[in-house]
C-alpha cells in the first residue's frame, strides 16, 4: 500500500503538470513551434516511434560501447598505477588534466582524428572520454582502500605484491568499481549525446541527431518526443545499473 502511494504521488503530479501544460497551450494560442501541447508531442511520439526507437538504440549502443572501452582502459590503467608508484605519479596528472578539460572543447580534434567520414567513431571516443574518469578514479581509490589491518595480515603472512593485488586490493576495490561504472554509464549517455551534437551530421544517427534535425525543421513536438525517449532511456539504464550494483554488492558482502 505504502509503495503504491509512493508510486501514485509522482504520477499524479505529472498528470496535473501535463493537464496544465495542455490547457495553457490551447487557451493562450501559443504557436506549436514554440511550445507544442503534450497531445501533439504524444502524437509525434506515436508517429515517429520506429525511427525514434532505432535512434535510441544507436545512442544506447554508442554509450554501451563507450562504457566497455572506458571500463577496460580505466581499469587497466588503474591497475598499472597500483603496481607502480612511478607510473601512478606519471599517469595521475595527465588523467586529471584531461578530466578538467571540457570534452566539448576536445570534440573538434577528435572528429578530425576519427576521420570526418566516420562521425560515429568520434562519438564513441568522446563518450569514452567522459565515461573514463569515474571508473578510473573509483578504481584508483578502491585499490588503495583495503583494510589496513587486513593489509598488515597479508604482510605478516608473507604475501607477495601480486598476491596482495589479486587477493586483497582488487576484491577490496569492487564496491568502488561498481559505483564508478554506475556513474560512468549515465555519463556515457551524456557523452554520446554531446558527441552526436558536435558531430552534427547524419552519419551519427542517434537521438541527439533527431533532436538537431527536428530543431532545424522547427518540428518542436518531434524534439520533445526525442527528448522524452532519451530521458526514459537514461533513467532505465540508471535503474538497471543501480539494480546490478545492489545485486553485485550483495554477492560481494554475502548478504
Amino acid at each position: 500500500m505504502k509503495s503504491l502511494t509512493a508510486l501514485a504521488i509522482p504520477l499524479v503530479f505529472i498528470a496535473i503538470l501535463l493537464a496544465v501544460w495542455e490547457a495553457v497551450c490551447r487557451l493562450s494560442g501559443v504557436p506549436a513551434y514554440l511550445l507544442p501541447p503534450p497531445s501533439a508531442i504524444g502524437a509525434s511520439l506515436v508517429e515517429g516511434w520506429p525511427l525514434l526507437l532505432s535512434s535510441a538504440w544507436n545512442t544506447l549502443f554508442t554509450a554501451l560501447t563507450a562504457l566497455i572501452v572506458a571500463s577496460l582502459l580505466a581499469s587497466g590503467l588503474a591497475l598499472l598505477t597500483a603496481l607502480s608508484p612511478v607510473l601512478e605519479r606519471a599517469i595521475q596528472p595527465v588523467a586529471v588534466t584531461l578530466q578538467v578539460t571540457p570534452v566539448i572543447a576536445v570534440a573538434p580534434l577528435v572528429i578530425i582524428w576519427a576521420g570526418l567520414d566516420h562521425p560515429e567513431r568520434a562519438v564513441v571516443v568522446l563518450a569514452t572520454i567522459v565515461a573514463f574518469f569515474p571508473i578510473f578514479s573509483g578504481a584508483v581509490t578502491g585499490l588503495k582502500a583495503a583494510d589496513p589491518d587486513l593489509t598488515r595480515l597479508f604482510d605478516l603472512y608473507g604475501a607477495g605484491r601480486l598476491q596482495k593485488l589479486l587477493r586483497l586490493r582488487l576484491p577490496s576495490a569492487v564496491p568502488f568499481l561498481l559505483e564508478g561504472h554506475k556513474v560512468a554509464a549515465g555519463l556515457a549517455v551524456i557523452g554520446a549525446v554531446i558527441g552526436e551534437f558536435v558531430a552534427g551530421s547524419g552519419g551519427a544517427q542517434g537521438l541527439a541527431w533527431r533532436i538537431l534535425e527536428a530543431g532545424n525543421r522547427l518540428q518542436t513536438a518531434r524534439m520533445f518526443a526525442a527528448l522524452f525517449v532519451l530521458a526514459v532511456m537514461a533513467a532505465l539504464l540508471h535503474a538497471l545499473l543501480q539494480l546490478a550494483e545492489r545485486r553485485a554488492l550483495v554477492w560481494w558482502r554475502g548478504r
Binding site: 583494510d147 595480515l153 605478516l156 608473507g158 587477493r167 586483497l168 569492487v174 560481494w252 558482502r253 554475502g254
Partner: peptide, 26 residues
C-alpha cells in the same frame, strides 16, 4: 599470528576461505 580488536575478515570470502588464507598465501 596476529588477531586484532576487530575480526578483520575479508567480507568477500567465506569463513573457511578467510581461515585458509594464510596457508594459501604460503
Amino acid at each position: 599470528s596476529l588477531v586484532f580488536q576487530a575480526a578483520t575478515l575479508a567480507p568477500w570470502l567465506s569463513a573457511a576461505a578467510n581461515v585458509a588464507l594464510p596457508l594459501e598465501l604460503s
